[in-house]
Amino acid sequence: MTATTKSRAAAPSRGDTPARRHSRIRWRSWGPGLAMVAPSIVLIGIFVYWLLYKTAATSMTDKHSFNPNADVHFIGLDNYASLFGEPYYQHTLWNLLVLTVVFLSGTMFFGLLWALLLEKGVKGEGIFRSVYLFPMAVSFVAAGVVWKWLLSNRTGDQAIGLNQLFQELGLGFLQNSWWSSTAAFNMAAMAIPAVWQLSGYVMALFLAGFRGIPSDQREAARMDGASEFQVYRHVLFPQLSPIALSALIIIGHMSMKMFDLIYSIAGANSYAAAVPATYMWTQLFSKSDPANASANATILLLIVAVVVVPYLIYTNHVEKGQGS
């Protein structure tokens, strides 16, 4: 590769037309770059796009068993129709909605609140920041071990975990069965560990945003007689909206594929805590149904794509506009 680029300025060989020479020079200028990225393009092409295609293709077949000798036929969108008709699947979609709403609003609320508390600088900021952020270093599986215990549904004399803490603090009325109830909003409890893990991340994003705004903007607004609230409302917050959007996208797509946490707290086949990602596991290994599991996964992909693709295009667009 070095040889071809080094000779970029070398004299053209005889017989070259100007046009051919021109295209060869252009190729020499960007060819090595393409060659350098080529292995990654191949890997991403195969392991992302080809596999996504394979899953989508399987989702439109009647491959309802792992038998390699079974005849497989294309059946269009039948699996999707039957999936949306399943009460179990509808239940997982509802659970996912509740989980996502609480997860998103919880992380955004605490993330912004902590960033606001820290952004002007406090003594021991490093300690607060590290502690707020540390749950992120812990895997959902390890966190699941302790949260499974904390969110136990045992109450009264048998209570353990948070229920028992409530009892000791004289707050017995707060005891509840958390995620394991049949209540419509039980998944709000499953969002608690998720909020615990990722609020610090959102805080770090917002903190970076606050620190990125030049100080003279605040000073100028204060000089103009703006109250502290007005400074935030009209000067600082508008500049943080790209960060808020990034945070929403990142947390939102994590919520869509939330699997580890639920698997380790509730188990893979829990009905109460089922979401599409865990139901896919059930479809695959309890029902041995790759076609329906693929349909389920493809729907997840589409939900994510509907949000992420416009975001990526928008980001690209804005960057071009700024000439970077």
């Binding site: 392991f47 796009y49 394979k54 399987t58 797509h253 896919m280 695959l284 992909l301 994510v304 990526l312």
Partner: peptide
């Protein structure tokens, strides 16, 4: 941009053929 999208995909959608 195609690379970046690979960052967001739910791995559930590749894991069976993977």
């Amino acid at each position: 941009t195609l690379f970046l999208f690979g960052m967001f995909i739910p791995y559930q959608a590749v894991i069976i053929p993977l």
